[in-house]
């Protein structure tokens, strides 16, 4: 059997609280091949912390422990901060929620994307420029030469997110972690951005971890879905099998979404204090 690209075993994240440490992620484990994995949960379920822990982005005072975190045969836990920096961006990269906050406002788009490439590779200037132009072309920006000279505030949200994706994909990573990549965008643009991520992932044979609160959206773009609740994975589903969900939390989550052809008078509501067994 082939080794999975990424192996995570028993991830635990703890924050200090006024009444002693609070554990927010309770032992999350999964394997990731070259596939599209979705992580779904509500606020506070630990889905974003899981995504960030993979890149070892959580800093003091958060305490992150794993039994095993192996990426492509490399033990990420054993790496120094400097070695980790060579993995981030180049091998595993991350697209955040809002392009408004994650792009540098005082750098032009062209310079920012070029920087992402130059940090990881030593290339002549003309080569860098060609690669940036080709990348912008790939994320379907019509006029790359004009857009390269623009600042982030001069582009729309959807274009900003495409620029982010270009920046994350230009070093040709193996894994892309997308944390709510479309929550700040309009519905019509959402589909475009996700279709784009999807084409890029499949086209380049990469792996995707899509983190979102929207179960149906994740199911549409992923092969496999993990449902998280209160720091635990409560259910794992094949994307096409959403209706076959057995866990009460997943079912509750699905039922609570109003549908387009809504005829129910009252939406079912979940019991917030309910503790689910493993």
């Amino acid at each position: 059997m082939t080794e999975p690209l990424l192996q995570l075993r028993n991830l635990r994240v703890t924050f200090p609280g006024p009444r002693g440490p609070v554990q927010v992620v309770h032992g999350v484990s999964f394997d990731l091949g070259r596939e599209r994995l979705g992580i779904v949960g509500e606020s506070g379920s630990g889905k974003s912390l899981t995504g960030r822990s993979l890149l070892r982005l959580l800093k003091h005072p958060a305490k992150v422990e794993t039994d095993r975190l192996i990426f492509d045969g490399i033990d990420l836990n054993a790496l120094s901060e400097k070695q980790m920096r060579n993995i981030r961006g180049a091998r595993i990269s991350m697209v955040m929620q809002d392009p408004k906050f994650s792009l540098n406002p005082v750098m032009t788009i062209g310079t920012q994307i070029a920087e992402a490439l130059r940090v990881h590779e030593n290339l002549p200037r003309t080569e860098v420029k060609t690669r940036v132009r080709a990348m912008l072309d790939q994320v379907r920006i019509d006029d790359p030469d004009r857009v390269m000279k623009l600042y982030p505030h001069e582009v729309s949200g959807g274009m900003g997110q495409r620029v982010m994706i270009a920046m994350m994909l230009i070093p040709q990573p193996d894994v892309l972690i997308a944390d709510e990549p479309t929550s700040a965008l309009d519905v019509s643009v959402q589909a475009q951005v996700l279709d784009l991520i999807d084409t890029m992932i499949v086209g380049n044979g990469m792996a995707l971890i899509l983190i979102s609160h929207d179960l149906e959206l994740v199911a549409r773009y992923c092969d496999r879905v993990l449902v998280m609740h209160r720091g635990r994975v409560v259910e794992e589903l094949e994307a096409g099998q959403l209706h076959a969900a057995t866990h009460p939390y997943t079912k509750g989550l699905l039922a609570a979404v109003p549908r387009m052809d809504e005829t129910r008078k009252v939406l079912p509501v979940m019991d917030r204090d309910m503790e689910y067994d493993q």
């Binding site: 509500e42 609160h213 929207d214 179960l215 609570a256 979404v257 509501v269 979940m270």
Partner: peptide, 14 residues
């Protein structure tokens, strides 16, 4: 709001 909270608020509004 989260989907489960959204359901509660929508019910309240109705």
């Amino acid at each position: 709001l989260d989907v489960s909270v959204q359901a509660e608020i929508l019910n309240l509004l109705v």
